[in-house]
Computed example of a mutant assay.
Amino acid sequence: MEDIKWLEVAIDTTTQELEDLSARLTMNGVTGLVIEDEADFQQFLENNRQYWDYVDEELQEKMRGVCRIKFYVSDDADGRKQLQKWMEGIDKPYTTTALGENDWAHSWQKYYKPMEVGERLYIVPEWEREEPVPAGKTALYLNPGLTFGTGSHASTQLCLGGVERYVTDGCKVLDLGCGSGILSIAALRLGAEHAVAVDIDPKAVDVAYENAAMNDIGKDRYHVLAGDVLTDEGLVNELAEQKYQVVLANIVADVIIPLSAKVDRFLAEGGTFLCSGIIDVRAHEVVEALERNGLTIVDRWEKKGWVALAARFQ
């Protein structure tokens, strides 16, 4: 089948003119507008700052001073005719960039290749699952396009190293802030008997179940919930009905710090709390919170400015 070609049309504007330009394009029949605006970007960061400790500087620089609208037409005579119609009465200059169907939908896959993590894990994108797995490695199949948690980020790799060290055959695992489910699914692949995973984003539930199914893990061993353990006491009570030998939290310092006061509700005697996603300059705050709530640090790992901690009640 012939590869469909597309044109990405970009119109630079100002924050003040953005709303009017969007309305005019919509009236001309444009659908699927993509708006890139530094002001909206900064507002989004401010309103959601509790979910991260830093924002990539390259991304911030890319958005600096940006205010533009993008839309797409087919790269042929019909598409160019449609573009001319959509731009009627709009005297702003625009640029076009040619894209192939494959460029648009699938080219990101080339950035995800199988990779070794820790001593035993071998993370494999679903489209390469037929590739042989190195001897002595445990395969973990994932769809990296689904949501956060591909195994490529240093904080996830640190936590996966902790999973290798502390997960034992037959243990129970609780994964708080599970994202793609990578940590809890890895624990099950490495011998855990049962895992419960929770994420504040409801979309993570289906994503985690889909990734689990790729690894032949069913709902008899894996249970995924949506909710916020910091604010939903009913959810906390439900999770605390059983105890877990390993509790995982690859989130950020601002969530781990208040979460440390609830860990005793979930952790079995002698169990381990593994937390990651901690930028190094804030690690001391997390350590202080853990110790304040009766936990003792038993392991610490660092990589590329990120810190992971293992703690236990002594």
Rank of each mutant, 00 (worst) to 15 (best):
M1F: 06
D3L: 15
I4V: 13
T14W: 11
T14R: 10
E17S: 03
D20E: 11
L25H: 06
M27G: 15
V30F: 08
L45K: 12
L45T: 06
N47G: 14
N47K: 10
N48A: 04
D56L: 00
E58N: 03
E58S: 02
M63P: 09
R68D: 06
V73G: 07
D76R: 15
D78C: 00
K85F: 02
I90T: 08
K92S: 08
T96G: 03
L99K: 07
G118Y: 08
I123V: 11
V124F: 06
E126M: 07
W127M: 04
E130A: 12
E131N: 08
P132T: 01
Y141A: 09
L142K: 12
N143F: 07
S152W: 15
G161R: 15
E164S: 10
I182F: 00
L183N: 06
I185Y: 03
A187G: 09
L188H: 13
L188M: 15
A192D: 15
A192W: 05
A197Y: 00
V198M: 03
I200L: 09
I217F: 01
R221S: 10
H223G: 13
A226G: 11
E238P: 13
L239D: 10
Q242K: 09
Q242D: 10
Q245F: 00
I257F: 00
L259C: 02
K262G: 04
E269T: 09
G271R: 09
F273P: 14
L274D: 13
I278Y: 02
E285Y: 03
E288L: 02
N293G: 09
D299H: 13
R300Y: 09
V307K: 01
A308K: 10
L309S: 06
